[in-house]
Design a protein around this nucleic acid. Structure first.
Lengths: 216, 216
DNA sequence: GTCTATACACTGATAGAC
DNA sequence: GTCTATCAGTGTATAGAC
């Protein structure tokens, strides 16, 4: 009877808590690693009793798996800009910008991803073998076409992609080291602009596109 | 009396076991992280009873600390080639080659280092603030001089160094991902040559040095 | 100097009251 | 559907026999 009317936004509350747990878990996993992270820490940061986590996620590994999958989706969405442009200069510049933005505003996610891959991808190996492999092959073909059209230097497409991933994610994964070398202070807005400009300058010049991404 | 004569190579045996423990610890820490690594795993891999580890290293953290310090020394030695050359083309090419060799033959060490920095450098923060900061500032000045002498493009020296670190270490830290994208097989000798050549090609061209590092 | 057995703390997960 | 109390398992570290 009144049961349906009795739950206004009950599902929303559950979603809101799930999101809070996932956010806390991402941070704790990033800072302590899977083995070093504890359900107690995650629960405290999410503001819930420890046992409640198992009501939303059956096991620690299931929670971790969800965190990693979310990060993977963010990577994939950022990769879309690679296709929305019609030339290497615009596409690669946009891709660098998008990934640098993620490194700046989502460093914890990048760290969890890096840790997962470093440990042999025990949880997302299937994604590496399917989605990531397909995406990489597709993008390598696009780069190869640009090379044959004479729109950029002949470089190995895969190693170019690795360099893009490595360089952009470095600003997230090693942000503590960069901060220390910056006198203990996080990069300012203008310093982030410098970082993005430097990465674009070197890589675009490195593949023979000289007039793009230069501000002055 | 005969006590000194009674210990032939006793110190050597201790050093040999210490080295074996350190080697096993490096691998376990790299694969499982600090929190995921157990003294049992390290002991098994080193072929010693678990409790014996505490005879050589008082705590798990002390063992970990020694592993991280050793890796840092390897990084520093590799950085020496930066100074043994007299120009940017030779110096940076040699630095890339040296770091790529470490990534190939010492991936576990690179992973432990990456993990330590990602978690906020709880153990080697002092090294970051002293040795690494001084080395970085010195090398940035060298690069700045090369720029003023017109021997390479004007780029931000620090972001160039970050790109060198990120790109070369990526082949160690993400070797599992690279292996997966390579059809599940480790890079062959020639593929490693391609990787080194690609990195040198893009970065050297990216800083305005066009005729170096090209094989054919 | 080396190993076996054990103490003590803490973790992930669950049972049961509300 | 939510929380308190607790269990079983595991981890580091150590005491004590040899």
């Amino acid at each position: 009877m009144n049961l349906p009317a009795k739950r206004p936004g009950q599902k929303e509350r559950r979603r809101e808590r799930e999101a809070r747990i996932l956010k806390a878990a991402e941070k704790v996993f990033a800072e302590a690693g899977f083995g070093g992270a504890t359900m107690q820490l995650i629960a405290d940061m999410a503001g819930l009793p420890k046992a409640n986590l198992h009501y939303y996620f059956p096991t620690k590994e299931a929670l971790y798996r969800q965190v990693v999958q979310n990060i993977f989706q963010i990577w994939l969405r950022a990769a879309d800009v690679f296709d929305s442009a019609d030339g290497p200069a615009e596409a690669i510049a946009a891709y660098i910008d998008a990934k640098m933005e993620i490194s700046r505003h989502h460093p914890a996610g990048s760290k969890v991803w890096a840790s997962e891959v470093m440990h042999g991808a025990p949880v997302i190996q299937d994604y590496l073998e399917t989605t990531l492999t397909e995406w990489t092959e597709g993008r390598a073909q696009v780069i190869e076409r640009w090379i044959e059209e004479g729109r950029m230097n002949r470089v190995d497409p895969r190693h170019l992609l690795y360099m893009l991933w490595a360089t952009t994610q470095h600003y997230a994964d090693f942000n503590h080291q960069i901060e220390t070398l910056n006198g203990g202070k996080p990069l300012s807005d203008s310093q982030w602009d410098d970082a993005k400009a430097s990465v674009k300058q070197i890589i675009l010049a490195g593949i023979g596109i000289s007039d793009a991404g230069k501000g002055g």
